[in-house]
Amino acid sequence: MARTNEAQLNIRSRFARDRVTALARQTGMTATQVVEEALRAYAPPVEGAPPAGLVRRGRILVMPASGRPVTVADVEETLDEIRNERC
């Protein structure tokens, strides 16, 4: 008797097999459900896009601004404090 569903995926990675088994036990899902859910959630990185958490500013990658903006006066004040500590 022929199979009606020939879908099959063989994964030879010990890590993947162990991780899927552990997640299936923790969640009560089947191994197939765990793999399907992981594949639905996966989004490959976009070619040329900066790594997560960074933004491109010209030719360099920087962390996006958070909190209040830093002024030239703030920088000068901090540098003066550092210079005075060394004396």
Score class of each variant (00 low, 15 high):
M1F: 12
M1V: 15
A2D: 14
R3Q: 14
T4A: 13
T4I: 13
N5F: 15
N5H: 13
N5T: 14
N5K: 13
N5I: 15
E6F: 07
A7H: 12
A7T: 09
Q8F: 11
Q8M: 13
Q8W: 13
N10G: 12
N10L: 15
I11L: 13
R12N: 12
R12M: 13
R12A: 14
S13A: 07
R14F: 06
R14L: 01
R17C: 00
D18K: 02
D18S: 00
R19Q: 05
T21F: 00
A22G: 11
A22K: 12
A22F: 11
L23H: 02
L23C: 06
A24T: 07
A24S: 13
R25P: 03
Q26V: 08
Q26T: 09
T27V: 05
T27L: 15
G28D: 08
T30R: 07
T30L: 04
A31D: 06
A31L: 09
T32S: 10
Q33Y: 01
Q33M: 13
Q33W: 02
V34K: 00
V35S: 02
V35Q: 01
V35H: 03
E36G: 09
E37N: 09
E37F: 11
E37V: 08
A38M: 04
A38Q: 03
L39R: 01
R40H: 05
A41T: 04
Y42Q: 00
Y42D: 00
P44T: 01
P45Q: 05
P45L: 04
V46S: 10
V46P: 08
V46W: 02
E47V: 12
G48P: 10
G48E: 10
G48T: 14
A49S: 15
P50M: 08
P50D: 07
P51E: 11
P51L: 10
P51I: 08
A52I: 12
A52F: 15
A52D: 08
R57Q: 15
G58Q: 12
G58R: 06
G58T: 10
R59I: 15
L61V: 09
M63T: 15
A65R: 03
A65V: 04
S66L: 07
P69S: 10
P69E: 05
P69C: 12
V70E: 00
V72M: 09
V72P: 01
V72W: 05
V72N: 09
A73E: 14
D74N: 04
D74A: 03
D74K: 00
E77F: 10
E77W: 14
T78I: 13
T78P: 00
L79H: 05
E81C: 12
E81N: 15
I82K: 06
I82C: 10
I82R: 08
R83S: 10
R83I: 12
R83A: 14
N84P: 07
C87S: 07
C87P: 09
